[in-house]
């Protein structure tokens, strides 16, 4: 574990230094990535230019969901995001070279082309979170204040687990790559909105089958002191850290199983 972390740090730093060789490109790419990431926020802004409430939630509350969802997603993307590119490595046969090196292939894939622009996308959600927190119209207790960083941390862990799970499936079903995006990018999109806009059965699916509701929705109900449309017990709102641990454990098992099943594409 310690070795893997050290290797992660070394490789990430090497890629960062490589990116810094082209400072203008690096800054422009950072700005551009931030703008692409800001589109979803612009979409929410446009919706609220026409209505005051969406699914029973006001603009500040929806932006709170947006900010926590995107902080978690961007952090997971910064840590592991390139797991998305695993399918390409498997298809092109370059994954074989990774297996020959004395570093975990997950670390190699995750740090590939590590670039500061991965963090540029954090700026907008962080700023929005700072703006909306005082406008949330909730009575702040110590527990609610503590829940905000806890939900971002567990959301990050849940998304990390999903990246690895989706990547693991690609060892077996190479062509599942496109459908995995529904889970990762789709999860990032759907957690920006209150679950009260979705149909109940759909919300049950993203609570119990794929635990996206624990990224920010359930903890947000606790922070905002709102009733759960599904009527789940109050303890569910505090379950995000436990769910995150379970998802990551499952992902670790799946990755190992996938790696064992891996067969080179040959030539």
């Amino acid at each position: 574990m310690g070795d893997a972390l050290r290797a992660y740090g070394t490789l990430a730093w090497a890629w960062l230094r490589a990116a810094a060789q082209y400072p203008v490109s690096m800054v422009l790419l950072g700005l551009a990535s931030a703008a692409v990431a800001g589109l979803d926020a612009a979409g929410i802004g446009l919706l609220f230019s026409r209505v005051h409430r969406l699914g029973g939630f006001g603009a500040a509350q929806v932006l709170f969901l947006y900010a926590t969802s995107q902080l978690a997603f961007v952090l997971s993307d910064a840590l592991l995001g390139n797991a998305d590119l695993l399918a390409r490595h498997v298809r092109e046969g370059t994954f074989d070279a990774m297996l020959l090196r004395p570093v975990s292939p997950l670390v190699q894939v995750a740090t590939e082309e590590y670039s500061p622009r991965r963090f540029a996308k954090l700026v907008l959600p962080a700023v929005l979170l700072a703006i909306v927190l005082p406008r949330l119209d909730t009575s702040w207790t110590a527990g609610r204040v503590a829940m905000v960083p806890v939900m971002v941390a567990s959301g990050t862990a849940i998304f990390c687990g999903l990246w690895v799970l989706v990547a693991s499936v690609q060892f077996v079903l190479l062509e599942s790559h496109g459908a995995g995006k529904a889970l990762t990018f789709g999860g990032s999109f759907l957690t920006q909105y209150p679950m009260s806009v979705f149909a109940r059965d759909f919300v049950r699916g993203v609570t119990f089958a794929v635990p996206l509701a624990f990224v920010n929705w359930q903890p947000a109900l606790y922070v905002l002191d709102r009733p759960d449309p599904l009527g789940l017990p109050a303890a569910t709102r505090l379950a995000s850290p436990a769910v995150a641990v379970a998802v990551c454990g499952l992902a670790a098992l799946a990755w190992r199983a996938g790696l064992r099943r891996y067969r080179s594409t040959g030539s």
């Binding site: 062509e175 599942s176 496109g178 459908a179 995995g180 529904a182 789709g186």
Partner: peptide, 8 residues
């Protein structure tokens, strides 16, 4: 692959 994309 196209079907998988279609599902997304």
């Amino acid at each position: 692959m196209a079907l998988a994309e279609g599902l997304t």
